[in-house]
Amino acid sequence: MSTNTSDTSDTREAVEATDVSENPSASELAAEVEALREELADLKADVDDDGTSMVIVSTKGTLDMAYPPLILASTAAAFGWDVTVFHTFWGLDILHEEKSKNLKLSAVGNPSMPMPNAVASLPGMDSMATKMMNKKIADNGTATIEELIEVSLDQGVDLQACQMTIDLMDYDEEDFYDGVTTGVGAATALQRMADADVQLLV
């Protein structure tokens, strides 16, 4: 095929032309190698400095949905990762000092519950399911939400409370655990996510 032939010859000419036109001296080559070495060192430093990082967006405030983000966050921090958990909507209740000790399990619409929805929707069922779950948590030696928040903060996890939701829910910044970051929004979360190695929505 003629096109292919002409392509090949073009490439050859181009290579020869480059060789002739540049024909750099040894000192020019040495300088170029030095410049490339510096660039490589900078790039390596960038890669090494940036350890693994993770951002979790936590949107649910039921007892069962409060655990996964906190367990992953505290464990990732133990790995030495840089961790941010951005709490928004009902996820905010996890950081709310009072509400966090009172998170509920929903009996309705939970296929794992050993009862039909018609029964689960009766008054008192949510609190019964919550009581059962809390007992299981205690019996199993599973950490409480409060404990997980403490170890996360101790290890440097950035627990963030979405400012828009704080205002929406009429919460006060004082309502949250000490060490929780307030005054942040979607742009902060996105900026962290763009730089992160792991991003999760819970």
Binding site: I71, S74, T75, A77, A78, N140, T142, A143, E147
Partner: peptide
């Protein structure tokens, strides 16, 4: 002993 995930790892790290 008696503690469950994630505490063994978190406390080991500490």
């Amino acid at each position: 002993q008696g503690e469950s995930c994630p505490m063994p790892v978190v406390k080991t790290k500490g």
